[in-house]
């Protein structure tokens, strides 16, 4: 009987502390990363290694010089774009797990100047995209005289030139930052962005005030797919110079973590992308200079991922979904 009617009681007027929705809380945001470093330190200590020394080496190899920083930015570029791709969907109340697939199609299109209908790109399932591009490269676009499954190199004029030779830092990173600004502008300053945000925060409210839900979902998927495709395209034009079968080490999925840990906030997303970029560039180098196994990097990533999953359960539409389940 108690509260069975679901009717609020008169006078039940709680004044919740106002939540600064738009302000980033640096401490909260940095929390998962600091805890990950702590967990990694415990593991290092337990295996008899010098944790501080290892982290120092990791920091040096990812941030300790111009070329190290350049490599970190190069590594951050694709996950920044896939992070934005995922965040666009999240903020519109949908979970686009197809970013990885869009990335492949975008990459393939870049390698071939092929015009792709982005709606198709977006809605295509990851495996369909990955296997389709794999099939295309193996049967139709295979580079002659090479045993691996890759396309011929793209023309030199089509490659993005390095801003900082010999690194592969190109305007792709600058473009990704511009896309971040566009992302912020879109959600905060445009009517369509406002509509998508309302759909993400409360679809019943959005519907009652006359926002077309089906249209909003389609638009969010399309934007998300385009960004995923751009991530793949830049990777080909700026880093690989050719389409390589199964070239992505999971950029699309890392993008999910980037979007979650950045809490959909543009600055947060950039910071999270830089973190993953640093881990991947520093982690690759650290093996050359020490006996630290790559597993350490995996542990750090894994710990951060746990927090990403916790973040996931705090998304409004996931909360609703959990309540109904």
């Amino acid at each position: 009987m108690i509260a069975e009617t679901g009717i609020p009681v008169a006078g039940q007027e709680t004044i919740a502390p106002p939540r600064a929705l738009r302000l980033l809380r640096p401490v909260q945001l940095a929390g998962p990363f600091l805890i990950a470093l702590l967990v990694g330190a415990v593991v290092l200590f337990a295996s008899g290694r010098d944790a501080i020394g290892t982290y120092w080496l990791l920091a040096q190899q990812s941030l300790g010089g111009t070329s190290q920083i350049a490599n970190t930015l190069v590594a951050a570029t694709p996950v920044l774009l896939t992070g934005l791709a995922t965040a666009v969907a999240f903020r519109s109340g949908i979970f686009n797990v197809g970013v990885e697939g869009s990335l492949y199609v975008g990459a393939f299109a870049a390698a071939w100047g092929w015009r792709v209908d982005e709606v198709v790109t977006t809605l295509m399932l990851n495996y369909v995209a990955i296997l389709l591009t794999s099939w295309l490269v193996n049967y139709y676009f295979l580079a002659p005289d090479i045993a691996n499954s890759m396309s011929p190199l793209i023309a030199k004029q089509a490659r993005l030139s390095s801003l900082l030779p010999p690194s592969q830092l190109t305007i792709a990173f600058v473009a990704a930052l511009l896309v971040t600004l566009l992302y912020a502008y879109f959600f905060d300053r445009t009517r369509l962005g406002y509509e998508l945000r309302m759909v993400g925060l409360n679809p019943r409210f959005a519907r009652a005030v006359g926002i077309d839900l089906a249209g909003a979902v389609l638009i969010a998927f399309v934007i998300s797919g385009i960004l995923g495709g751009v991530a793949g395209g830049f990777q080909i034009l700026g880093v690989n110079y050719r389409f390589i079968d199964h070239f992505s080490p999971g950029y699309g999925f890392t993008g999910i973590a980037v979007a979650l840990l950045g809490r959909g906030h543009p600055v947060g997303i950039v910071l999270a992308a830089l973190f993953f970029g640093a881990l991947s560039s520093g982690g690759a180098m650290i093996q050359l200079f020490s006996d630290i196994p790559l597993d350490l990097i995996n542990i750090l990533q894994g710990t951060v991922m746990i927090f990403a999953v916790i973040e996931l359960s705090r998304l409004p539409f996931v909360k609703r979904w959990l309540r109904h389940a």
Binding site: Y194, M198, F205, A208
Partner: peptide
């Protein structure tokens, strides 16, 4: 709406964002 918190308003959004939707064009 009879369901103010679930449909009439968008609780996580700001007051301006709650007043604005019908005037968005």
């Amino acid at each position: 709406s009879e369901d103010r918190d679930g449909e009439g308003a968008c609780l996580p959004a700001t007051l301006a964002e709650n007043v604005f939707p019908l005037a968005r064009y």
